[in-house]
């Protein structure tokens, strides 16, 4: 069972701000996934090979050739704060002994 704490933790990890109603909504939805999951667990998969991808495609590789990049203004345009061609971000860690 996914409880309220689980939902809040997932929201925090994904940087989502949820209202009280949304917390309840997602807790309900996620638990219904688990119900479906439990059904799937009843299928005998002992003879099925595990898959990580929906389609069995073999990786297409790219030759090592330089192409075009975006202009700097376009790159920086996505940032709330910029300085001298850099993105500017607030303090990252706090140090101590």
């Amino acid at each position: 069972m996914i409880d309220r704490q689980d939902v809040m933790r997932m929201a925090r990890l994904a940087r989502l701000e949820l209202s009280e109603e949304e917390i309840e909504l997602y807790q309900r939805d996620l638990n219904s996934f688990l119900v479906s999951g439990r059904k799937l667990q009843q299928v005998d998969v002992s003879k099925v090979e595990g898959t990580s991808h929906a389609v069995a495609v073999i990786g297409e590789l790219r030759p090592d050739v330089v192409g075009e990049s975006l202009p700097q203004e376009a790159v920086l345009g996505a940032g709330p704060q910029v300085f001298n061609g850099f993105f500017k971000v607030p303090r990252i860690v706090e140090g101590q002994e």
Binding site: E60, L61, R62, S69, Q72, V75, G85, F86
Partner: peptide
């Protein structure tokens, strides 16, 4: 110069699709 060798793939813009460099 900073942020001049970037594109939608390495910036993680929506819809961009990565392709592996064979040399790597």
């Amino acid at each position: 110069p900073p942020n001049t060798q970037c594109c939608p793939v390495c910036l993680g813009l929506p819809g961009a699709l990565p392709l592996v460099n064979e040399q790597a």
